[in-house]
């Protein structure tokens, strides 16, 4: 059992580490935390329990928030007296399918349309299959139009609701 700064009386469990990580918000979408986002893949203690390795995977190859998230993880866990190492893996590649329904509900409440389920249309660039219906996070109408596949961050697309006339962002299915 690993031990943190409080010494032998309060061993830090893997669950406790995960709970600490859940306190770190996604720097670009602070409504959800980095565990809900799905970028934290594993937590591994070193043999003597003095250190912990956090295995992470980027959302997009060039996501500028990745460095911020790594720094946040280091800061959070170092404060517990742990030696922190970050390991970046690329496989399996991050997918929005890892997001739970609860997380998607949080995104919607925050004003971002949650990602639809990954289907074939997302997997082939020239697929002519109709895009999945995108729901406006404000009025729930599916009478919406794509403005741009690329939004304010790598993970979002711009849409417009033709019912309530609000522009909104869609967390892209990836």
């Amino acid at each position: 059992m690993p031990f943190g700064k409080m010494g032998a009386s309060t061993p830090i469990t893997t669950d406790a580490i995960w709970n600490l990580l859940k306190q770190i918000p996604d720097p670009e979408v602070p409504a959800i935390n980095i565990v809900e986002l799905g970028v934290v893949r594993d937590v591994i203690f070193s043999e003597d329990g003095s250190g912990v390795e956090v295995v992470m995977t980027p959302t997009y190859s060039g996501c500028p928030a990745m460095k911020v998230m790594e720094d946040d993880v280091k800061e959070k866990l170092s404060a517990e007296g742990l030696e922190v190492k970050i390991k970046i893996i690329y496989k399996p590649a991050w997918t929005t399918d890892w997001m739970s329904e609860e997380t998607k509900a949080k995104l919607k409440a925050y004003g971002i349309s949650p990602p639809p389920k990954l289907t074939f249309e997302h997997l082939h660039p020239l697929s002519t299959v109709k895009n999945a219906e995108v729901m406006c996070p404000f009025c729930d109408s599916t009478n919406t139009t794509l403005t741009s596949q690329f939004g304010s961050t790598a993970c979002k697309a711009l849409h417009f609701c033709d019912s309530c006339h609000q522009p909104f962002e869609l967390f892209k299915c990836h």
Binding site: P58, Y60, S61, I89, Y90, K91, P92, A93, W94, H122, L123, H124, P125, L126, Q149, F150, K172, H174
Partner: peptide
């Protein structure tokens, strides 16, 4: 090669978007 396979899995999704946009 595992590293190449992993990097490619990531890049593949991105290129799908890029090609769709350009086409």
């Amino acid at each position: 090669d595992d590293t190449i396979a992993g990097l490619s899995e990531k890049a593949l999704k991105e290129m799908t978007y890029h090609v769709r946009h350009a086409s």
